[in-house]
Design a protein around this nucleic acid. Sequence first.
RNA 1: GGCCCGUUCGUCUAGCGGUUAGGACUCCGGCCUCUCACGCCGGCAACAGGGGUUCGAGUCCCCUACGGGUCACCA
Length: 462
Amino acid sequence: MRVTRFAPSPTGYLHIGGLRTALYSYLWAKKANGKFLLRIEDTDQKRNSREAAEAIEEAFRWCGFEHDGEVIYQSKRFDIYKKYIQQLLDEGKAYYCYMTLEELDEMRKAQQAKGERPRYDGRYRDFCGEAPEGVEPVVRIKAPTSGVIEFVDGIKGEMKFNVEDMLDDFIIARSDGTPTYNFVVAIDDALMGLTDVIRGDDHLSNTPKQIVVYEALGFEIPKFYHVPMILNPSGKKLSKRDGAMDVMEYKRMGYFPEALLNFLVRLGWSYGDQEIFTLKEMIELFDPSDINKAPSAYNPEKLLWINAYYMKTLPYERIIEALKDLGFELSDHPKRELLIDALRERAKTLVEFIEMANKIIHKPESYDPKAVDKFINEESKALLAEYLKSLKAHGEIGDAESFEAFIKSFLDSHGVKLKILAQPLRISMVGSSVSPSIYDTMEIIGYGELVERIEKFLKHIA
RNA sequence: GGCCCGUUCGUCUAGCGGUUAGGACUCCGGCCUCUCACGCCGGCAACAGGGGUUCGAGUCCCCUACGGGUCACCA
């Protein structure tokens, strides 16, 4: 059974880079009917991991994917880690080191001054003398001192690290007894039964260390996939300044999770020329070995385009639901489907959709002066008044087609072109010179409301 | 600095020794048209540089340049 995981450190929110690796892990697990686990790496204990986990789960829910099983908190597993530290100590695979922070610092400086790589010199590796007074020791693992550590990365290929210029006896337990990252990651990944570890390639050079732990503990080494990171639009490291880092910010900006996921899955991965993927297709087609080796830049225009695509193609119910998530209730509007069809080709985001919809649903509060200036003159004013008169004389009209037929015959009998009447009508209805088709707009607002809006506008320009 | 990773249009990418180097986003034209969009048609635009290997290199090898990651009692 394939088991993958997402293992963020609690930063308070989920960012798009994290979401992408989570997505990759999720897809890869689901493809094999395996498990996708969530673990919070909170050995640091400085931040509130509960809150962070909730933020991540909220983002997961929004995106429509759930992890299997309970969330695992490393902060609650210190007993387990302690047991393994003791085991390594007992087996002579780890040892206490009594160097102080100052000594360590001094040693590093000296090494750097000589142009050497800063590293622990192993002075307590085989120490059996009297422990120095007043020093709480750390625990270091006995790493190999020569040779190479090799593994095959599912994305980068064959990896070879020279032990001499890569490793030293790194710390697995701090002087306060708490375990360190590279140690607990290996233990948890093993204990949780991970078969495939998909993570950011900033972890690539941690992998040899973790392999040392796997081997010391006799655990089976999983398959690693190191995903290149996401860059900002100018090709630099992505930072908070580059816009919305919090995934939930995309919800607030009016993006569909379908669109964000689709955008993210294509960032660094592709399947031929295909641009649009349903979640089902992603699960079917995704393979981490097809992920590109090079980092890729985040491209907001493309995301917007994908979102617009989903706006145009998603079923009514889904759009209504997404609007509701943003606090916009459309489900009881009698003309909701026509309204959606009228706006879905114009709005690129749900936020834009709501703005446009509000312009149609509510009477204009004001009229764009530029539009009035440009399209209203004595002729068009008279024509609009004339149109209102015949509209009232005609009585109730229901659908867009009938509104169109009525206008056609009105124009014919007055010998004028639609162009002269269309914009004044539009301004009457929505207060500006931009809107969906005037006929659709008429049907959506309805006959009575139409009459009222024209009257109101006529009064305004009188 | 050591080690490691990477480099095809501005961006996301296809390509897995023989292609007029394909698609998508953006941008620019045109068509459609009641405005704005959508849609459709068309256009601009790339193999980082240099050496090899080969009949033939975007594809294989080496070097250089540039970009990135990592070297903690952070994760």
